[in-house]
């Protein structure tokens, strides 16, 4: 799209309406709603059936999904659609006829892949293969559920012996996909944190103890302020990561990703704490956001990412 008047926040508002519409529907119905609103093709070129927008639009859209607790592989759909743009499978994903999950650890060569979510409903699963990646027919591999972190939306392990490859990504294409994944998952986590912060702020303003709202207590106000600071830092870091510097050089995304995941975990855990006993219950959906962000954290081994940032810094100094 070439209309410079388009603003990412306007798109995020429209995306929010679609995501709200998809709420409570089946996986297939969600797919239809989100596809109809063009969300899978946000970062796919117009001539390839997408909206032709860049990642600066993807960030607020995915953040809204995190904020509204969309439990659907929106990021995976956007990533695979973008990586396979121009191919039939890519078009099918943009249109919502097909769906894809991504297993972030393991590889075809190792014979297994792990840290994938939404696999049971997906048509395809993307796994690493050599320096690149392979898109597999999900039905051709053996799938094992790991519900320990999230019984409703579990992580999956796939045994890949005999799995059928339907498309491949070069090393360069897979590296691009991983860059975008860190941006978009970082944004999803930032949105999830923001949603938790908003819930906590609302609860603190309405919950009265000793004749005053909890939000009158300095300890509560200061904790909430730190949550806001980290939310803003996450968004600012992600937007910076996708912008070139003054000399036109691209930036690394790892610090923004690791920051967003760490910040989001802190914010959601604090939001649970601030809700008291209610925060610990299944009834209040804060646990859903915590599970979702921790799944991303585990898939990318954020602690390992931080260590690798340190190693790279040491090597360069």
């Amino acid at each position: 799209m070439s209309d410079d008047s388009l603003r990412p926040e306007d798109f995020a508002e429209a995306a929010g309406a679609a995501i709200t519409d998809a709420e409570g529907k089946s996986f297939a119905e969600k797919t239809a709603v989100l596809a109809e609103n063009g969300l899978f093709g946000v970062i796919v070129a117009e001539e390839q059936g997408g909206l032709g927008l860049d990642l600066s639009f993807g960030i607020p859209i995915v953040a809204v999904a995190g904020k509204l607790q969309l439990r659907y592989p929106l990021v995976e759909q956007m990533l695979v659609a973008s990586a396979l743009a121009g191919e039939d499978i890519g078009a099918a994903i943009v249109g919502g006829e097909k769906t894809a999950a991504i297993a972030w650890q393991g590889s075809l060569e190792e014979g297994y892949a792990t840290h994938a979510t939404f696999v049971a409903d997906a048509d395809y699963v993307l796994v690493a293969s050599g320096e690149g990646a392979a898109l597999l027919d999900r039905a051709s591999g053996e799938v094992q559920e790991d519900p320990s972190l999230d019984p409703d939306y579990p992580q999956y392990t796939l045994k890949l012996e005999g799995a059928a490859t339907v498309a491949t990504l070069s090393a360069e294409a897979f590296a691009k996909l991983k860059f975008k994944a860190k941006v978009l998952y970082g944004a999803f986590a930032a949105g999830a944190g923001e949603g938790a912060m908003d819930r906590a702020a609302s609860h603190m303003a309405g919950r009265v103890q000793f004749g005053r709202p909890l939000s009158a207590k300095q300890a509560v106000r200061h904790t909430m302020a730190r949550m806001k600071l980290l939310t803003e830092t996450s968004y600012a870091g992600l937007q910076r990561a996708i912008a070139q510097d003054e000399f036109g050089a691209a930036r690394d995304v790892d610090t923004a990703f690791a920051g967003a995941i760490g910040n989001s975990c802190f914010i959601i855990e604090k939001a649970i704490h601030l809700h008291g006993g209610m925060g610990f219950t299944w009834e209040l959906p804060l646990h859903c956001s915590l599970r979702d962000v921790r799944k991303i954290d585990a898939a990318f081994n954020t602690g390992g990412v931080v260590k690798s940032i340190g190693k790279a810094f040491i090597a360069a100094a």
Partner: peptide
Amino acid sequence: RRIGQIATEIDGLKGLIEQ
């Protein structure tokens, strides 16, 4: 890991200022 964490926070601060 500590150096990585500090570098991460420094980049976050750059983001806030540029924003």
